[in-house]
Nucleic acid binder design. Sequence first.
DNA 1: CTGTTAGCGCGTTCAG
DNA 2: CTGAACGCGCTAACAG
Lengths: 351, 351
Amino acid sequence: MKKPTIHDVALEAKVTPSTVSRVMNDSNLVKPHTRQRVLEAIKNLGYIPNNTARMFKSGKSHILGLVVSTQHISELSFNAGFQSLFKALTVKAHSEGYNILIITSANADAHSYFEVIKNQVADGFIILSPSANESLPALLDEAGIPYVFNMKYSNKPEEDYYVTSDNFEGGYIAAKYLLDLNHTDIRFIVGLVKGGLMSFNMDRIAGFKKALDEYGVAFSDEMIVPIPGQMEESYNLIHQLFQTHKPTALMISNEITTVAALNYFYDHNYRVPQDVSVIGFGPSEFFRNLRPNLTSVSFDIAWTSNGIVDLLLQRIESKPLTTERSKKPELIIRDSTARNHSTSQNPYSAK
Amino acid sequence: MKKPTIHDVALEAKVTPSTVSRVMNDSNLVKPHTRQRVLEAIKNLGYIPNNTARMFKSGKSHILGLVVSTQHISELSFNAGFQSLFKALTVKAHSEGYNILIITSANADAHSYFEVIKNQVADGFIILSPSANESLPALLDEAGIPYVFNMKYSNKPEEDYYVTSDNFEGGYIAAKYLLDLNHTDIRFIVGLVKGGLMSFNMDRIAGFKKALDEYGVAFSDEMIVPIPGQMEESYNLIHQLFQTHKPTALMISNEITTVAALNYFYDHNYRVPQDVSVIGFGPSEFFRNLRPNLTSVSFDIAWTSNGIVDLLLQRIESKPLTTERSKKPELIIRDSTARNHSTSQNPYSAK
DNA sequence: CTGTTAGCGCGTTCAG
DNA sequence: CTGAACGCGCTAACAG
C-alpha cells in the first residue's frame, strides 16, 4: 500500500540502501550482477525515488521560480511579450535541466513579493516586470536568494541583475522612423502599472524624446498617453483620444492596447496607415499576424530569456557573471506606417 | 556565511529547536515572552526556514505539476484556450494554496510522459491535451500518482479522471446554427496532433455529424479538414481549400487557425460573413476581440480549470470525488455568421 | 509551556 | 565492490 522506499528495495534485492542508491545514481561502483538484481527489485516493487528527499539531501531543487503579479497573469491573452517570454523561459530552463515554478503575488510591493518568494522551493527566481519598489533586491540579496529581473530595476545598473532589451533604443528608432516619414504629431501610448510607469517605459520615452530632440521637434507631456488598463479600457481611451485630437502617428508600448487600437480603427473606419500610422512594440511574430501587418520594434525575446536563465544559473552556481545584459531591438517595417502628407502638427508642441 | 537553521535560531534564543518550530508554525503553546525572544533571534539571524526540509518532513509539496508538451508550449501565442486555461489554473491553484510547476516533455508518448512526471516534485499532476496513448493512466495509477486530464482520455469515462467542456455539444450547436442559417456547404477544420485527432475533436465531429443528420444533410469525409499546423501552415491550407472549392461556412476548432483564416480572408478580400460564415471554438473574450467579432462556441474555461484543480485536490487528499466532469458550452452569436442565400451545396454530399 | 528523542528517505562518507 | 553509520533541517510524540 505505502510507497516503497530505498530500504524496501534493498531488502528485496538483498543488498543495502547504499547500493540501491548507487544504482539509482548510475555509479559505476556496482557489479553488473548486483546492479541487475537491484534493477529487478526496483521494477518488482515499482519503486520511485522520493524526489523531495533527494532535493532535501542535495540542497538543489532544479526549480526556477517565475514570479509574476496576478495582474500580469490575468493579462496573458494578447500579451504577446509575456507569452513569448514565458515560452522561451520554459524551453530554455528545460534545456538546462530546470523546471519553472509559477509564483504569483496579488500584492506587488517589495515586502509581499519577498514573503511569497522566501516560502518557495526554488534554486533561484526570475522576477518579471516588478512593480515592487527598490527595496526588493536588497531583501533578496540579504537573504542570499539568487534572482534575475527582466528589466532594469534600480538606477544603479552595475548592482542590478537583469537581462533586457534596450528599451531606450526601441523608443528612439520608432520615433526616428516616424519623424523621417514627416510625422510630428505623434502620440506614445504607454501602459501603467498601479498608476506608475515601469522602468522599461521610462527608457522608451527617453529614447522617444531623444529622437524628437534630434529632429528639432519640441516634446510636450501630452505626447505621452498613459493607458492604465486592459482591452476594454484601452479601447475606450483610444476613443477618447481620437475624439479630442487625431494624431497622425501612434507608438504603442503594449500589445493589448495595440490590438485595442486596431479594433477601434476597424470599427470607426480609420485607415491604417493612410489616416494614422501605427508602430507596435513586442515580438515580431505577433505583429506579423495582425491585420494590417504592423510595423514594429521587435525584441529578441528568445535572446532575453536565454540570458535571464543563463545569468540566474551563473548566480546559483556562483560562477562568473558573463551574460550580456541588454540587446538592441530592431525596427521591422511593415504595412502600418506611411509618409505623412498632412500638415497636422502636435497642437501642444508648437514652438 | 551559511544560511542559519532552526538550530542556530534555537541557540541564539536560548531555547530548543522544537520551540522555534512551534513559533514558526504559530502554535499557541508558546509563552508570549519566549515567542518574543525567538522572533528576535529569527530577525537577527535573518532566518528563513528550509522549505525543502518542510516538504520532506510533511510529505506534501503544495505543488501541482502542469504537464504540457513542448509543442503545446510553443503554440502559446494566439492559442487562447491554452492561455485561459493556464491563467485560470494558476489563479485557482494559488487560491487553494498550491503553486504550479510547469513540466514539459518533448516526446508525448506515455512512457516519456511517465518518466518525466515521476521525477518531479508535486502532489499531483494536471495533464493537458495528452496525445500520449492510453497506457498513461495505467502507469500513473499503478505508481499511485494523482492526476487529472483536461479532456476525456480513454473510452471508459467512468475510469477516467478529467474535467472538460462538453465537446460533443459544442460541435452540435455550431453545426445546428449554421444549418438553421441555410448553410449546408460547411467545412469543419480541426487540428491534428502528430497526425492524429485528439479526443475532444472527435467529440466535436460527432456532434457536428449529429446535427447534419437531424437536418437530413449527408455527411461526407471531405467536410472534415484536418490542419496539422500552426499559423503559417494554417494560412496556406486555407488558401488551398478556397482555391479548390469555396464553402459557405467554416467551423474552426482551434484559435490559431481561426486567426489564420481571418487573415487570409482579409488579404484576399473575402467578406465575413457575406462571403463566408465563420464559427470559432474557444474562450469568449478572445473572439470578441477579433475583427469581425466572431460567433463562437464559448467554453467556460474558468469552470473547467476550477474543476480540474478541485478534482485533483480531492484525489490528493483522498476525499470523495464530487466534481462534475463536464459542462455544456454556449453559442455566442456575433458578426461572423449570416444566412446563406446561395444555393451552393457541398459538392461531395449531394444526395 | 518547554525540552528530549526520534525519524522522515536519501546520499555520502568511511571501513572493510 | 559493498555495507554500516551518519546527518541534512525540520516536526511530532512524548515527558516533564
